[in-house]
Amino acid sequence: MRILIIEDDQVLANQLKRKLEAAHFAVDMVYNGTDGEAMGNETVYHAVVLDLGLPGQSGLTILKNWRKNNNIVPVIILTARNTWQERVQGIDAGADDYLGKPFHVEELVARLKAITHRYSARSQGKWRVGGFCLDEERQCITKEDGETVALTAMEFRLMRVFMLAPTRIHSKESLLEALYDLDKEVDHNIIEVYINHLRKKLGKESFRTLRWQGYLFAPGEGE
């Protein structure tokens, strides 16, 4: 498995590299944010270990940019600022796990192995989750019974976010960020409207509303 470490402390990064290589990972390393973001976009990694306090580009920004560009590489955040407030920010930005410094390399390895299994595989520009298949070229979704449903541009963008990370609960805010530019003032309720549209097209039970948490795309699970 090929992983990328973005960490500005070179000694720590080199130690990590050595140990992860001992655990049979192929490790690439970069010491600043700007290069890290580019590398994450150029190469397909199985996972990224991302430090938050980086020179150049902050870890959180890198993560948000990747997610915005549909880069769904699993990310473990590594940080010394070990508060829950930051953990929430990190996970909402699209991270898959969070590890506070100091940590045991064994734990990092265990978590890396756990998250690399998370995402569904991509095949010829099509995404399959629970009987649904999202076609990126034609911007439509095919149901289990073969019926094809056309999606509007906004519905497609929203659907792509859900299909990319099917086990993930998405907050209204993060969904909004996927649809609009950050500086735009948009009412949160617009998300509810789109979800309702999608529910009508794909079936009521395909989306779960989790009170105060967000939305979960869970086809076949039901309420």
């Binding site: 929430v88 996970i91 898959d96 969070y98 086990t167 993930r168 907050s171 948490q213 967000g214």
Partner: peptide
């Protein structure tokens, strides 16, 4: 609590997705 617990639960569920 709404804001905080909602976000925390979402985070913990996303971490413990398995």
């Amino acid at each position: 609590p709404e804001q905080s617990l909602g976000a925390l639960t979402r985070t913990l569920k996303n971490i413990n997705f398995h």
